[in-house]
Design a protein around this nucleic acid. Structure first.
Length: 462
DNA sequence: AGCACA
């Protein structure tokens, strides 16, 4: 029966690659330990603030000789080891490694391991994950998988700082409900660091993405949820995909304006055009994206969800058969975000004269909020170029709720990032007429048409 | 100034 070799001899200093440091400041940081010790070798682990007075620490070197170097040096150095002017006493630890200091998941890296609790793999799309984490910086890659721990995702940022900011802000938080299926009630994120530094993504698929390589082939066997239209429960309903979504809104307790739709649908990509109209007493809308993929992502993520808590303004999404809407560039029922900024400004001025701007009123907070908070991006009058493509992390955290607390969403404390407007303008004359309004009425009419000279596109003719 | 606890 041999012992581990670690005897309890207090006064016999068996060399160890772990050093015991005493008389440190009570709030000594890992960084200070590293600064003190790194001249002697590579530090693989630390544990500070140990002991009743929190004034002790352990430092583990990669190699025993490095620890010996340090002890030997200070045994005969003219100046003792010091932290903030305090003499630090250094001995070999009576253990051979630091145990239980930090789990590997606490060692910072640029890749986060995210466990999404309370959901199944199908409940949270990779687009939603991307959306949530893009708030903190460019997300390079995402890989999702199911393990015993549940549904997990590896999120790769370009640097540790961004990753740690995301972890700090999101660990323990929830993904906003309206980005999740209805049956999901709680969806907490548990975030640790992965040991990975660069994920190996082979395909763009429903479970992995490489945003640094848009030309990466799409895995033809893993397309579900990415491009394929959802096949209905009857297995028959196959609608041809389109870059334009047709939305019908149920239970319209609150007003849903162009701005609200723009904010919601911009979560998945650039929204080019929006039109809202009534048909048979039901509110409907068309939302145009530049491409089919974005539309599919938005459709999958938002179908069946309510814009407001309580089952209000429930979205039902299908693909429109239109590919390019012809809408008034700026009215209370439609918006064309592809028109040049100068034209838009001119239009806003025109509308200020003829029609009130479609500022959304928070139905639970009385008078219109003057767009306080981040969600102000889509309020008319703001310069489109001021739109940010990501959340401002400075506005994150602090509260117990998910990032951002715009006043725009009753019952929610979250707004998706609003990508900037595209600067490109669609070629004129390429539009199709909208035929969803079978009555032949004027679905997008506003009280006063704009002057033709200010219109980049021909006005819609019912 | 004197050895940590998942």
């Amino acid at each position: 029966m041999s012992t581990s070799g670690q005897q309890q001899f207090r006064y016999t200093q068996t060399p160890s690659k772990v050093l015991h440091l005493r008389n440190l400041p009570w709030d000594c940081s890992d960084e200070e330990l590293v600064e003190l010790c790194k001249p002697f070798g590579k530090i693989v682990n630390t544990k500070c603030n140990v002991g009743a007075n929190r004034n002790q620490a352990f430092v583990e070197f990669a190699d025993l000789n490095q620890a010996i170097n340090m002890v030997s040096y200070y045994a005969s150095a003219s100046e003792p080891a010091q932290v903030r002017g305090k003499t630090v006493y250094i001995q070999y630890s009576n253990r051979n490694e630091i145990v239980n200091n930090k789990s590997p998941g606490d060692v910072p890296g640029n890749v986060l391991l995210v466990t999404i609790e309370g959901v199944e793999a199908g409940d949270v799309s990779i687009d939603v994950i991307h959306l949530v984490f893009s708030a903190f910086g460019f997300v390079q890659k995402i890989a999702t998988f199911e393990k015993a721990a549940g549904f997990q995702a590896l999120i790769q940022f370009s640097d540790v700082g961004t990753a740690s900011a995301a972890r700090e802000a999101l660990d323990g938080r929830s993904i906003p409900k309206y980005l999740l299926p209805e049956h999901v009630n709680h969806c907490h994120l548990r975030i640790s660091y992965s040991a990975h530094t660069d994920l190996n993504i082979k395909f763009q698929s429903h479970r992995s993405r490489d945003y640094t390589n848009p030309y990466l082939p799409v895995n033809p066997t893993a397309m579900e949820g990415l491009l394929q239209p959802v096949v209905g429960p009857d297995g028959e309903k196959k609608e041809p995909e389109s870059n334009v979504l047709f939305a019908s809104l149920e239970n319209m307790q609150y007003a849903v304006t162009v701005d609200v739709l723009h904010t919601v649908f911009s979560a998945f990509g650039t929204v080019q055009k929006i039109a809202i109209f009534e048909k048979n007493g039901q509110t409907q809308a068309l939302i145009q994206y530049p491409d089919l993929t974005t539309a599919a992502a938005a459709k999958d993520a938002l179908e069946g969800h309510c814009i407001y808590d309580g089952g209000y303004c429930k979205l039902h999404l299908s693909y429109s058969r239109h590919t390019d809407l012809n809408v008034q560039a700026y009215s209370d029922k439609s918006r064309d975000y592809t028109v040049p900024e100068s034209s838009l400004l001119a239009m806003q001025q025109a509308s200020a004269v003829h029609a009130p701007p479609a500022v959304w009123h928070n139905p639970q907070s009385g008078p219109a909020q003057s767009s306080a908070g981040y969600g102000a991006a889509s309020v008319p009058g703001q310069a489109p170029t001021s739109h940010s493509s990501s959340w401002n992390p400075n506005l994150l955290g602090g509260g117990s709720t998910f990032p951002l607390a715009p006043t725009r969403y009753p019952g929610h404390s979250y707004a998706p990032p609003v990508p900037g407007y595209p600067t490109a303008v669609n070629p004129p004359g390429s539009s199709q007429q909208i035929n969803h309004n079978a009555t032949g009425g004027r679905p997008f009419s506003v009280s006063q048409p704009f002057h033709p000279s200010t219109m980049p596109h021909a006005p819609y003719h019912g």
